[in-house]
């Protein structure tokens, strides 16, 4: 399994801004091809959603993608089965994003092992805040899976170092007050969050939630080490954009970030 933090640090040291596109696991027959296409397009890691029935941190697009995926019979087992070997083959680490009940139901230790066995490098559980993350984070550490924590604009200053100390792989800076979904502009809080986090940690700081196009990604990366892009990609996919065209879109974001 690829070490998420080492992989991202190496890319950052090489002067690169980090790009993490998102794919809803089990969305359609070609979802794994989409993961490969994003890897080819220059992603530094790929976030794969395991659909959950009640995604409270997600806006309409990811909700819809989750409903579609669940409607096709997608389960954590099927997503992890499909992902087996993909990260090794592409050389790009995979981070799953899901909600805590799927881990709780399986058992923290068993779920972490299942991720590790599928070659998954990390996990983001947005309904598991610092105070509740203990048992999961320990299980993830032991399985070698990076437990990525989120930091939000509402956090008082003294909370941020605690979040960063417990986060593995990178720290996820929530760009705004709100759930996932496209926005016409980058929130003013996005770079503020990145700055506040950069001031207290050496972990890679990636901004996510609401990053909706290449220009916003570039703007966020003026301060942040990288960005996570989700809703825009899944909206295009739900609208019928082909794997090739969506890969090309991610490649265009890559170029924009490289050109600064």
């Amino acid at each position: 399994m690829i070490d998420l933090e080492a992989h991202l640090r190496a890319a950052r040291s090489a002067g690169r801004k980090l790009l993490v596109p998102y794919v809803s696991g089990g969305l359609d027959d070609e979802w794994v091809d989409l993961v490969r296409a994003f890897a080819d397009a220059g992603a530094d890691a790929i976030e794969v959603g395991i659909p959950f029935s009640d995604p409270v941190m997600d806006g309409p697009t990811i909700q819809e993608a989750s409903v579609v995926a669940l409607g096709r019979g997608t389960t954590p087992t099927s997503v992890l089965h499909d992902l087996r070997g993909v990260a090794d083959e592409t050389g790009v680490p995979i981070v799953v994003m899901t909600y805590y009940n799927l881990a709780y139901r399986a058992g923290d230790v068993r779920f972490a092992q299942q991720l590790a066995e599928a070659g998954v490098s990390g996990a983001i559980l947005p309904d598991l805040p610092l105070e509740e993350v203990g048992p999961w984070a320990e299980a993830a550490d032991r399985a070698g899976v990076a437990s990525v924590l989120l930091a939000a604009p509402t956090a008082p200053d003294e909370r941020l170092p605690c979040i960063c100390a417990r986060s593995r792989g990178f720290v996820y800076a929530v760009s705004l007050l709100g759930v996932t979904g496209e926005r016409t502009e980058l929130a003013a809080t996005a770079t503020v969050m990145a700055e506040r986090l950069k001031a207290v940690t050496d972990l890679p700081v990636l901004v996510g939630v609401g990053i909706s196009n290449a220009a916003q990604a570039v703007e966020a990366c003026a301060v942040a080490d990288g960005v996570i892009m989700a809703s825009v990609l899944m909206r295009m996919r739900l609208e019928g954009t082909s794997v090739t065209d969506l890969g090309a879109y991610v490649a265009s974001v890559r170029r924009a970030l490289d050109e600064g």
Binding site: V56, P129, T154, A155, P156, I163
Partner: peptide, 12 residues
Amino acid sequence: GGRFVPETLVPA
């Protein structure tokens, strides 16, 4: 019980 909420809501 507990407090399983998005990080944004923890301070609230």
